[in-house]
Nucleic acid binder design. Structure first.
Lengths: 209, 209
DNA sequence: GTCTATAAGAGGATAGAC
DNA sequence: GTCTATCCTCTTATAGAC
C-alpha cells in the first residue's frame, strides 16, 4: 500500500516535471514564433533557449511542425479562457466582447507572445490540420466568436452588410497584423494609445464617422 | 563610321535582350514571392521558372535579396504610375484616390502579383534598406499617399482622430492582408464582391455606420 | 529522457569550361 | 553570360551511449 502510494506519488511527480518541461518548451516556441515566425525559427534555437539538447526536444515533440502546433494550442486555450470570462460578464454585449478579445490579441502581439504562422507554408498547414487538438480548439473558438458576431449584427452594432465569415477572418487577421509592431518601431506612441488606434481602424474604419 | 553605328546598334540590341531577360526574371520572382513568400521561395525555383541555370541568374542579380528588391521596385514603380494617373483624374478627391489605390492593391494581390515580404526577416530588411532604388521609390510612394491622407483629413472624409502615419501603415498592410486570399479559398464569393467587402472593412470598419 | 555526434538533404552561392 | 558541377553552410532529424 505504502509502496503503491509512493510509486503513484513518484509517477505523478515525474509527470509534473515532464509537463513543466514541456510547458517551458512551448513557452519558448511561442516567443520565438512571435519574434521570428515559423520559417526563421530553428529547432536548435528552441533547444538552446530551453536549455536542453535538441535530441531531447524530439523526445517531447515529433517535429518542428508539432512544436508550432503546441504553441498554437496554447494560445487558443488562453483565448478560449478569455472568451469564457467575457461570456460570463453580463455587463458586456456581444459587440463589446468582440472588441475586448481583439484588444487582448493586439496586446498579446505587442507583448511578443502571439505566435504568427505563415498562411503560405503548406507543410505546416497540413500538419496543423491533421492535429486534432489544434483543429478542435480553432473550431471551438470560431464557433464562440461566430455566435457573438451574429448577436452583434442582430443588435445592430456590427455591420449587417458583411457576412459573418468576413468579420471572423478579419478579426483573426488583426491578431497577426504587422501594423502595431511597425507603429511601435516608429517609437512615437505609447502602446495603449497605439492599440486604441488600431482597434479604431478595425471597428470604425479609416473614414470619418 | 558605319562600323561605329553597327557596333552601337548591336550593343543596344544586346542590352535589350538582357533587359528582357531581367524583366522575365523579375516577373517570375514577383509571382513566386506572391505565391510562397520570400523564405519559401528558392533560387532554384526561380531559375527553373525562368528556364535558365541558377548560375546565370547570379550574373544578373547578386543575391536572393537582390531578386526580392527588384520585384519590390517593379511593384512600387507600377504603384507610382497608378498614383500619377489618379492624381491626374480631376474627378476624384483625395479620399477617392486612396480608396482606388487600395482597391488596386487588393486586386493585384488576388491576381497573385503582389509580392509579400516578411517584416521579420532582418537580413532581407537590411538588404532592402541598403537598396537605393527600393528606398527612394518607397519614400516617393509614401510621400504621395501622405499628401492624399492629409488632404482627405482636411476635407473631412478621412478620420482626423488618426495620425497620418497610422493611416499610411494601415493601407500598406492591407496590400498584403491574408483576408482576401482566405475568403477566396472559402470559395463562396466572387472576387469583385470580396474586394468590396475588404475595402468596406478597411474604410468603414466592422461596426454599423 | 538526456546527452554527443552525425546522418541526410535542402538551399545559397561559386568555379571554371565554353 | 550561359552552362554543368560542386562547394559549403545551415537545418531537420536520428543513432546510440549513458
Amino acid at each position: 500500500m505504502r509502496s503503491y502510494n509512493r510509486s503513484v506519488a513518484r509517477l505523478s511527480f515525474r509527470q509534473k516535471v515532464l509537463r513543466d518541461r514541456e510547458d517551458a518548451i512551448v513557452a519558448s516556441v511561442n516567443r520565438l514564433l512571435a519574434a521570428k515566425g515559423f520559417d526563421l525559427m530553428t529547432v536548435d534555437e528552441v533547444a538552446a533557449d530551453v536549455g536542453i539538447a535538441k535530441a531531447s526536444l524530439y523526445k517531447h515533440f515529433a517535429s518542428k511542425e508539432a512544436l508550432a502546433a503546441a504553441a498554437m494550442v496554447r494560445v487558443l486555450e488562453i483565448a478560449l479562457q478569455l472568451v469564457a470570462a467575457l461570456q460570463a460578464d453580463a455587463s458586456l454585449d456581444a459587440f463589446d466582447r468582440l472588441k475586448a478579445v481583439t484588444r487582448w490579441a493586439l496586446q498579446t502581439q505587442l507583448a511578443g507572445e502571439m505566435p504568427s504562422l505563415p498562411a503560405q507554408n503548406s507543410t505546416l498547414r497540413n500538419a496543423l490540420m491533421a492535429d486534432r487538438g489544434y483543429v478542435d480548439r480553432l473550431i471551438e473558438l470560431s464557433d464562440r466568436l461566430g455566435e457573438w458576431i451574429s448577436a452583434a449584427q442582430a443588435s445592430g452594432r456590427l455591420s449587417r452588410a458583411l457576412p459573418p465569415e468576413v468579420v471572423l477572418y478579419t478579426l483573426f487577421a488583426r491578431a497577426c497584423d504587422p501594423v502595431p509592431g511597425v507603429l511601435r518601431a516608429g517609437g512615437s506612441y505609447e502602446d495603449e494609445q497605439l492599440i486604441e488606434w488600431v482597434l479604431a481602424t478595425c471597428f470604425d474604419g479609416l473614414a470619418t464617422r
